[in-house]
Each structure stands twice: as structure tokens, then as C-alpha cells.
Design a protein around this nucleic acid. Sequence first.
DNA 1: CTGAAAGCGCTTACAG
DNA 2: CTGAAAGCGCTTACAG
Lengths: 340, 340
Amino acid sequence: MTVDRSSGAPTVPPPPRIEDVARHAGTSTITVSRTLRSPHLVAPKTRERVLKAIDALSYIPNHSASSLASRRSGIVAVLVPTIGNSIFAETVQGVSEAVADSGLQILLGDYGYSDGRKHSLLRAMAGRRPEGVIVVGLIKAEEDRALLANLGVAVVETWDLTDTPIDTVVGFSNQAAGALVARHFLAAGRRRLAFGGGRDDRASARARGFSEAAGSAGLASVCFDSANSGAIGAGRQILAGVLDQDPQTDAVFLSNDALGVGALLEAQARGIKVPEQLGIVGLGDLEIGRAFRPRLTTISVGAYDIGFQAGRVVTARMSPKPPGASIVDMGFSIVVRESG
Amino acid sequence: MTVDRSSGAPTVPPPPRIEDVARHAGTSTITVSRTLRSPHLVAPKTRERVLKAIDALSYIPNHSASSLASRRSGIVAVLVPTIGNSIFAETVQGVSEAVADSGLQILLGDYGYSDGRKHSLLRAMAGRRPEGVIVVGLIKAEEDRALLANLGVAVVETWDLTDTPIDTVVGFSNQAAGALVARHFLAAGRRRLAFGGGRDDRASARARGFSEAAGSAGLASVCFDSANSGAIGAGRQILAGVLDQDPQTDAVFLSNDALGVGALLEAQARGIKVPEQLGIVGLGDLEIGRAFRPRLTTISVGAYDIGFQAGRVVTARMSPKPPGASIVDMGFSIVVRESG
DNA sequence: CTGAAAGCGCTTACAG
DNA sequence: CTGAAAGCGCTTACAG
């Protein structure tokens, strides 16, 4: 293998420009440009010569230049609380596959559940003039809302629902999901219900729906900081905390499946029978919950589908006859398995 | 909340340009530019006026234009087999945090274990003239190697080791890791060893090291397609396959922890005692392996650290006095827990 | 089917 | 400390 190991910095020749290709092919720059993006407008013979020149020079168009001239960045900005949570990674994968053949590339922003970083990432992304923006969660700050609205492209808020999206929202009602779990527990005759989850907006909405539906049966609500890693461990601690507050608790809703599995493990460690003594329900329908014994009952929300739909909204908006703003309720369902 | 719901498409006014800011501030465009990137070169009074104008107009510089003029894209390209695998998501997070204050943004490419998509993503990314490229795995195709080498920026291959990196490699020896697991099994008196994992290069290297060290004790090797989702389910199938081939197998090395947990579940379902009858070892030190009972013995590889280091290499290369190419062995260690 | 001219919105030397 | 000129590498109308 002959590899130039010293290729590091300034020894590399500048990449060929469109002009070099044109000269090589004995034509003009505009014809090279056309060969690349509207080949049908170029005579076959010319096209072939240009293609040959491109290949000979290993020409790759400078995207900054074409973006500037065409006002098309070819970028879709995706903002997530953390890419470390597999559920959001799934959503990103959905976006990735939805936009794959549109030529859009993903600019990923991970704000680590920090509002400050979220804001600055949003600004930095706006500078790229993306052709679409997809964020996990709703954007509340008026400044950020205005920033995104002024971009003039599809802005898709996801993983939640609202009547007042900036543009489009693709998600489900976290509150309704929480309420459904509470009703499920009550219908099973459980009488002392608790909730555990993160402090982010989505978890809070789930908690709200849950305790409203639980009514007087609603009890402890234990939160932890979403930014902390180790959801399974957090789930163990949450259940411990819940039982501290009320040892009689007979049902716990955890804000996601990793927490749910953690709670399952803690119950196991304490010799608590699930689901007989304690019902446990998670959210997300992760593989870990399906694989665990007892199998985790969960709210299934289609993380991948949310991303895929959001990606579709972005690509659709780029079409000649773009659809308008909308609210897409992806819904959710409860998958009753063995844990409660 | 007063939100313009009709903000969708062409009704949005074009964003302000640097010229608008200059006019508003009663100065020249170059002074605006300087205020943004070399504020110390601008008189405090002028600076203040410019800042005020920027704020008043909500000016956000067009990145395509500044990239073109400055030849700095502000992008680091990150290419992963799949973002859906939490271990790679961790690596991406490491990159993200390592480059956070350098102003670099992450252009994420997910090639879904497809070589074709990998190649085309690499080309598309090259068009952005990234200031650094980080890929999971080694780049073998000579065409791709040349493409990356000609970029003239830091190119970091990760998650493996080689004597001939394109530029820099940050990882560990997958082969040595496999060998260590085999020796660990042999030292524990196990005599019929099997391997299970994906078909990608890294899994293959682990398999190779494992069977070489296993010598005549090496037995079945069961592979599955890395692109398939559901690693836990795959782990179950792998163990089933292994036991089909040789029911006497007393040790299995799974290429990652999710597979390992799957194997643990399958053993459990079959009433096989772990670690007494069967030793199981995974790789990655994922939380799921730590949380499971029995706790999964694993090879710990620091996925986050690999990404962080790779990110550092990129930012370091951008410094005035950049370091040269190098080979960074991050090593690995075996974390012996309860499963084998 | 092809090309000359102008321009996309910034920054880079270079002067002063 | 500030600015006029030139240019980054493409594409967009507009002609022909």
C-alpha cells in the first residue's frame, strides 16, 4: 500500500475548480455545471467529455460556492437533546433515511439538555441556511421561534404535540400517553401510582397526564436530571426513591424503557414480585424492554417513524407545490406485556 | 402566543446581509466582519455600534459565503456504520464534546453498513471541504483513501488500529481484544470456545484474534448481518446457532454487549447455568451489560473516549503548529464480572 | 445545445 | 483603527 503519510497540512495541492475541468474538457464552466445538475440539457458527446475530465481530475464541486450561488445549502439541521439516547438516535436514523435520496445532508446538533447550548446551536445552524430544521421537542423561547420562522423553510418540531407549532409538528401527546398509563393501572385494580422520569418538557408532560388521570391514586413523582447518563441505574434509584416515599406503591410509570428496566432490576433485587405486587410500565418500546424477563409493558411511540415523517415534511416542502404547515399526530399505543 | 403560522415558504423576507448591517451601523462591511471574528481589532465605540446593528437586524452571517471567502467550512465530517448502535452514538457524542468550543459543527453520515453509501457519503462530505474527517473503521478502498488524503485536513480512522492509516488512527486492536478473551476463557479452564458477531471488519478482526488464540479449542463461529437491527434478538439466535453446532460449547465471545445480553437471555431460557456451564463475554461495556443479572463480563473499549480523542486530533491539527500524523492506541481491558 | 457576464455574501491582503 | 478593491468557486438568468 503506498500511502502518503505526510499528507497532513499544507503540502496538499488545492483541489481542482470547475474552471480546470472546463479547460480540460474544452468547454465552459457553465456546461460543466450543467453536466452535473441538468445532464439532459447537455449534448451527449459534450457530457461525456466533461464527465471524463471530472473523473481525470477527481473533481468534487465546492459546496460552499454552489450553495452561495444557488442559495441551496443541501443541509437539513437536526437538533437533539442527546444523541446518546438510543431513542433519539432512532429518530435521527429515520430522518437520515427519509432524506437519503433528496441529496440533503444532516447537520447534527446535540445540545446535551442544555438550553444555552440549544440556543447557540440553533443560531449556528441558522447560519448554514438549512433547507429544513428538525428538532426534538417544542421550541418555546420566542427568540428561537422567530429565528426559525424567518428561515423560510420547513421547521419540524417533534416528539410532542401543540396547537401552535412554529410551522409543523410531528409527534404525539405525551400528556395523553401518561394518562393512558394511569388508566391502565387503575383498570388493573392498582391503587397507589407513582411516576419517575427526567426533568425535560416531554417527561413533565407525561407526568402531568399521568397524575391527572390517576386522581387521588396518584402518589410519588420522582425526577432525575435528564442529562445524567446511565438510565438503567437511574431507573433503579427512582424505584428506590418511590418505595421510600410509599412502600405500598403498587404501580410505577417510568418515562422511558431504560428507566423501566432499571426499575425491574431494582424490584428483582428487593424480591418484589412483578407484576403481582408491583406493575411497571415504560415508554419507547426499546428492544431491551422486549428482551427482558419479565417483558416490559410499554408505550410504543415509533421514534424512527417520527424522524422519517419529519424528514418527509422537509423534502416535501422543497417540492414545486409545497404543502403548508400542519400538525401530525403519530399517536402511540400501549403494548401490554408481563410487567404490568 | 403570537406565532405566524403562515411562515412556510416564499413570504419570508430575505435575511439581512452584512452590507445591511454596515449601512445600519454607518460603517463598512469589513468592519462588521472584523467585529464578528477579530473584535479586538475594532475600536470599542465602533464595535458597539456594529453589535447593536447586528442585534437590531437579527443578522446571522451566511456561512456559505464566509466559508467560500475564508476557505474554512467550520465542519467536521463524521461517518458511522449506523447511529442506531449506541456504542457509535457514544463515539459521536465524544466528538461532539471535543469540538464543542472550536466552533466546528458535525456533519453526520450514517452509511447503514453499506459500502456503496459509504463511498457516496464520503464524496458528498468532501464537497463540503471539511476541516476534519472522522470515520468509524478503517478506510480500505484506495479511491476513498486518496480522496480523503487529498483533502489536506486531519483524517481520523477509529475503532481499529493499523500501521498504515491515511493520516491518524485512534482505536484499539480488535484482534488483540479477541485474543484476550480466548486466553481468559482458556485460563478459566474452558475448552470449547465459540464466537458470534457481525460481518463487519471490526467483528471479523475480533473473531480472528479469538480463534487464533483459542487454537484447537476454537470452535463454531456464527455471524449475522450487522445491518439488521435487534442486537439482543440476534444474540439469542447466535447462541442457539452455536449450541446447534456443538452442544458442548462452554464459552462464547459475542462481538458486542447487546449480543452478549441476548446470549445471556437465551441461556436463561434454556436453563443453562452461566457462568458454571457456559461463559459469556461481550464487548463495549454498555450499561445494559452492567445492569443485567448475571452481570456481563466484557471488553471495555471507551467508545466515548475514542470519539473525544479523534475530535481532539482534528482541533489540534487546526492549530498554528499542528502535530503530524500518528497512531493512537487507546487500548482496552477486560472487565470480569459474573457471566464468565 | 452552449456561453459571456453578473452576482451570490462574505473575507483577504493591502493601504493608509 | 478603518476601508476600497479583488476574489473565493460556483450558478443564474439571459442571449444566441
